[in-house]
């Protein structure tokens, strides 16, 4: 590893000022040289524009673009959110509201004791900084690449839990339903639950 502490004159500001070449003459260059600017703008007129015709043409965002949030699920469909509110506390814009509740034997929404009963993100406030994602202990909250969030009313910009929850994929069951047989929340977090089990199916939501 290189030592980055400045020692004497050969590092830091002293070195920078010693290395720097004197600032070139600030006087404007010759008249005809200045006219070159006109040539630049003229030639640019015949170059291909960079514009993307947005609503018709949609270019993919950068892979890590901070878009709309998503509440993820375990492979059997149970929610990953445990209602701990760490995201809400991390939020610098106070855009997240979480109310946790206890899972019961009849209504199991997430593995373990607690689940997020109310989950709201106010996109009129959200600044898409991603601190909530960093705060989430269960990887329940992530961000998608979706950016078309504009709307004509403030109330429509408050996204509820249903709006944020990830869709059910192959093998997932709509909670509430019991946990995978012979599993604990630890099993879930270790990723040892492969998908839903027939015994988890309940009549109430099927």
């Amino acid at each position: 590893m290189t030592d980055i502490t400045p020692r004497g004159d050969e590092f830091g500001l002293a070195k920078a000022s010693a290395d720097s070449t004197p600032i070139p003459d600030q006087e404007p260059s010759g008249f005809f040289k200045q006219l070159l600017g006109f040539w630049v703008t003229f030639v640019t007129m015949f170059k291909k524009p960079n514009t993307v015709q947005y609503p018709e043409v949609k270019e993919p965002t950068a892979p890590r673009f901070h878009g709309r949030h998503q509440l993820n699920r375990h492979p059997d469909g149970l929610e990953k959110c445990i209602g701990c509110e760490l995201c809400a506390w991390a939020c610098p814009a106070d855009a997240i509201l979480v109310e946790g509740a206890n899972n019961t034997a009849d209504e199991q929404f997430s593995p373990g004791e607690r689940y997020g009963r109310v989950y709201q993100i106010n996109y009129a406030r959200c600044i898409f900084c991603g601190l909530c994602i960093e705060a989430c202990p269960t990887r329940a909250l992530t961000m998608t690449n979706e950016y078309e969030l504009a709307d004509d009313e403030r109330s429509k910009l408050i996204f509820e839990k249903e709006d944020l929850l990830a869709p059910l994929r192959q093998g997932m069951l709509m909670p509430p339903h019991p946990m995978y047989p012979d599993s604990t929340d630890t099993t879930y977090y270790r990723g040892e639950v492969p998908g839903s089990h027939p015994s988890q199916e309940t009549t109430s939501h099927a």
Binding site: F42, T44, M45, F46, P49, N50, T51
Partner: peptide, 10 residues
């Protein structure tokens, strides 16, 4: 339009 072209826009 012309200013846009000069700035590589449309």
């Amino acid at each position: 339009r012309w200013v846009s072209f000069m700035q590589q826009r449309v």
